[in-house]
Design a protein around this nucleic acid. Structure first.
Length: 638
RNA sequence: GGGGUGGUAGUUAAGUCGGUUAUAACGCCGGCCUGUCACGCCGGAGGCCGCGGGUUCGAGUCCCGUCCACCCCGCCA
């Protein structure tokens, strides 16, 4: 048995040794990243999560002569027999074997390299051990090699050996530490809340957990600690935070996983701006800790800009606009209505629907929008077609009308050119600020679809123009608060209102009288914090006044009994002496993704699920034995 | 629930108009090599072309179905 581990403790990690360590005898443990056998001398790149050190198995160093000739003395504990044995092992070694070496740090002399941080030195091996052999991995453990995601997820433990992923998870650790330090320093208490909670309808679909002790009944996995953190405020804990797992049984996306982590925060005796200042401070601390970046240089006031929800939707068609570039939308709806469609049949139809009262003019359920692709983008016609092709992924998308502006202001390459009146064309050119060579893209119809299409177009054009990279931050950080969205959503079909966020969000003070007269115009103290086009957090100031609460329920058509059934415990709590309170939750995974420049959420989660919410590593979910279901009094119909 | 892209050797990819023995790089195995660092040189093995059906004299290639992964819409307050 070798002396490693019990007697010979690890003295350094593989990314640590520098020129200052020359002459020291060290012990390193790690994985064989690569092996280069020169017949005599064998080089091994030894890897752990801190980096790579080149270790050298040289039979010439098994004799005393070379040591004394080159280094003037023998290293301590020098045993020629062990050194020779080590060289024999090196000839057997293969990638991903786990080994330990004891050796002397020496200068690489003329063979220094800057490719690795330890490139000034190498370790001449005096003694080695093979802790474990390894099967040849199904893919190379390397950052540059692109491998099918399916295989990476199946062998996730190997994928996680890649330096990039290790670095990302280390970054995640730093975010967690910075968060705890900062929030604790701000007087927030880290308190835990249940995962097994009561199912409440509405909102995200819950995962259900059968309750064995109460047959036929179910828990839900918490989609967030929302209700509990409000109860903690009622209890007087004043300031709370938690880094907490949340579960939502909804379809995945590049930035959405069925189980994910939130930095959850709630404050008492607070308002919107106080919450903003706290979060800005937290984000500054995280950037400092994880990236060494001082955001004060970008935001000297220490504050992120704010934009009303309405403005964000109007200018960018999104409640989470990417402001690393501008390319604003131009809303032509009013102009088109005024011109009765401007000669374009489709637009005339929309104008007629408003005129006849079929559409409510104050809510604008159908709109006409434009986006100008500047001449400087220099996009060819095939490139424009390519942009349109990407939009076809959107359900309901029927095509993008374009118009290229000629020198005299007329439109070319456009299906609209023939029907548009000169007057409308000039008015649109002026409204868009379009100059010769620019291309105007039009989209019209249902507001939600127009916004989905145009927001995607805006982002695609920016990528095509090189304003932002395909993915990643590109060295730009654009934070934004999107504030005060409508409290209610109006459903054209059922002619009813639904809570846009949740029923416990406080309306903005001056809109409270509108609850009875014009609910569609009631905005609320809700806010999202946006980074580079991703929503990295959202929250609200809560409604703690029972009277206003009742009036909100009235708008929603929630009868007393409904409210009691769903949220009775919270309503009771709010009547028991609830302080004014509000909070926010940051998407910890998204933060980690954006901050580390990762391409998907999966790259910042050690063991992520696939798009279809399965775990390729373990095969979960699986069927269970009928006896297990019987114990729960559950029958599978599949 | 809907749309899109992809699945060929262990990995990444090529494969023309349907035509003979399905290519390449890396990896793997064997041999040589004392200064490489993605070492190099020589040789070798490796394939249910995702799966099932169909058309055809003949299918990796065409058609139908299906599974899996990814991206998007819906959904996610």
């Amino acid at each position: 048995m070798s002396r490693f581990i019990d007697e010979l403790k690890r003295t350094h990690r593989c990314g640590e040794l520098r020129a200052a360590d020359e002459g020291n005898v060290v012990v390193l443990f790690g994985w064989v990243a690569s092996r280069r056998d020169h017949g005599g001398c064998v080089f091994v790149d030894l890897r752990d999560r801190t980096g790579i050190t080149q270790v050298v198995f040289d039979p010439a160093y098994a004799g005393a002569e070379l040591w004394t000739a080159k280094h003037g003395k023998l290293p301590e504990d020098f045993d020629p027999k062990l050194a020779l044995e080590a060289h024999g092992m090196a000839e057997q070694m293969r990638t991903e074997w786990v080994i330990g070496v004891r050796g002397m740090v020496v200068s690489r002399g003329n063979n220094k390299t800057t490719k690795i941080a330890t490139g000034d030195i190498e370790v001449i091996v005096l003694e080695a051990t093979i802790f474990n052999k390894a099967e040849t991995p199904p893919f190379e453990i390397s950052d540059d090699v692109q491998t099918r995601e399916e295989i990476r997820l199946e062998k996730r433990y190997l994928d996680l050996r890649r330096p990039k992923l290790q670095h990302t998870l280390i970054t995640r650790h730093k975010i967690n530490q910075a968060t705890r330090n900062y929030l604790s320093g701000q007087g927030c208490l880290e308190l835990e809340t249940p995962y097994l909670v009561k199912y409440t309808p509405g909102g995200a679909r819950n995962f259900l957990v059968p309750a064995r002790m109460a047959q036929g009944k179910f828990f839900a996995l918490a989609e967030s600690p929302q209700l509990y953190k409000q109860l903690l405020m009622v209890s007087g804990f004043d300031r709370y935070f938690q880094i907490v797992k949340c579960f939502r049984d909804e379809d995945s996306r590049l930035d959405r996983q069925p189980e994910f982590t939130q930095i959850d925060i709630e404050l008492s005796f607070t308002n919107q701006s106080e919450i903003f200042r706290l979060i800005e401070g937290l984000i500054f601390a995280i950037w400092k800790e994880a990236l060494g970046i001082d955001l004060k240089e970008l935001y000297p006031s220490g504050q992120f800009p704010e934009m009303p929800y309405e403005e964000a939707m109007g200018k960018y068609g999104s409640d989470k606009p990417d402001l690393r570039f501008d390319l604003p939308h131009v809303d032509l709806t009013d102009l088109i209505l005024e011109k009765g469609g401007g000669g374009v049949p489709f637009w005339a139809e929309i104008a007629d629907r408003y005129k006849s009262g079929a559409l409510r003019a104050d809510l604008k359920p159908e709109i006409v929008k434009a986006l100008v692709i500047p001449a400087a983008a220099n996009l060819s016609r095939p490139q424009l077609e390519e942009l349109e092709k990407g939009l076809r992924e959107i359900k309901g998308f029927r095509g993008l009308a374009r118009a290229k502006i000629a020198e005299d202001g007329s439109w070319t390459q456009s299906p609209l050119a023939k029907s548009i009146t000169d007057e409308a064309r000039l008015a649109i050119n002026a409204a868009c600020g379009a100059k010769p060579g620019d291309v105007i893209c039009f989209q019209f119809g249902k507001e939600t679809l127009v916004h989905t299409v145009m927001a995607r177009l805006r982002s695609d054009v920016a990528k095509r123009m090189g304003l932002i990279p395909e993915y990643g931050h590109g060295g730009k950080w654009s934070f934004l608060w999107v504030v005060n969205p409508p409290l209610f959503e109006y459903d054209e079909e059922t002619k009813t209102f639904a809570a846009a966020h949740h029923a416990f969000t406080r309306p903005v003070d001056e809109h409270i009288p509108l609850l009875e007269t014009d609910p569609a115009r009631v905005n609320c103290y809700r806010y999202d914090v946006v980074l580079n086009g991703f929503e990295i957090g959202g929250g609200s100031v809560r409604l703690h006044d029972p009277d206003v609460q009742q009036r909100v329920f009235n708008v929603l058509g929630i009868r007393d009994q409904d409210a009691r059934d769903k949220f009775g415990f919270l309503l009771d709590a709010l009547k028991s002496g609830a302080p004014p309170h509000g909070g926010i939750a940051l998407g910890m995974d998204r933060l980690a993704m954006l901050l580390s420049g990762a391409q998907t959420l999966r790259d910042v989660i050690p063991f992520p699920k696939t798009n279809q919410a399965t775990d390729l590593l373990t095969g979960a979910p699986v069927e269970v034995d009928p006896s297990q279901l019987a114990e729960l009094k559950i029958k599978s119909l599949s």
